[in-house]
């Protein structure tokens, strides 16, 4: 298999950290949100399936005591997919769960975002909103959890 993003020259390639960021956002997004984002593109490009979505397992490894030797906790379902745009750019996805359509869309977005022309726009219009809704959901949960914080300090009267 050719290296990721073969159609994009080395100097135009996104920094790995940036690519990790959008891949994480795409993997954690709800399938419906990805579908909406795809349908919302001005001109959704054609792509071919270089490796059609494949469902399988990822073994989750933990560490004894949280930081000691590794052990196998159990597996989780995951789906991976590779797409190719007409210009040869490859897009990859590795996502939790068994949603083939979501894996395909995540790979297609990954391919699009490797093209410098599309990258900034998609970061603003797709990845940003996905991250925002995730942050809003997390903040809402954090506020509910914070209300269950036990304040033992009020009971400690050592002075």
């Amino acid at each position: 298999m050719p290296p990721a993003g073969a159609a994009v020259s080395a100097e135009d390639a996104a920094p790995i950290a940036l690519r990790q960021r959008w891949m994480a956002a795409l993997a954690k997004a709800a399938a419906d949100d990805l579908e909406c984002a795809w349908q919302g593109l001005r001109a959704p490009p054609d792509y071919s399936l270089l490796r059609p979505a494949e469902v399988g397992l990822a073994m989750i490894q933990g560490r004894a005591g949280g930081n000691g030797r590794r052990f196998n906790l159990g597996e989780m379902t995951m789906t991976r997919c590779v797409v190719r745009l007409a210009d040869g750019t490859l897009g990859f996805s590795h996502i939790a769960g068994r949603d083939a359509r979501k894996a395909e869309l995540a790979a297609a977005f990954d391919a699009l975002m490797q093209r410098p022309d599309d990258r900034e726009r998609l970061l603003d219009e797709v990845i940003g909103p996905l991250e925002d809704s995730e942050a809003v959901r997390k903040q809402a949960m954090a506020e509910k959890v914070a209300a269950t914080r036990v304040d033992f300090f009020t009971l400690a009267r050592g002075d």
């Binding site: 073994m59 490894q61 560490r63 949280g66 906790l73 590795h94």
Partner: peptide, 15 residues
Amino acid sequence: RTTLPRLAVSSPIDT
């Protein structure tokens, strides 16, 4: 589970 291939092993989780 036995019908699915193993595609990956995760990096050790950081709890």
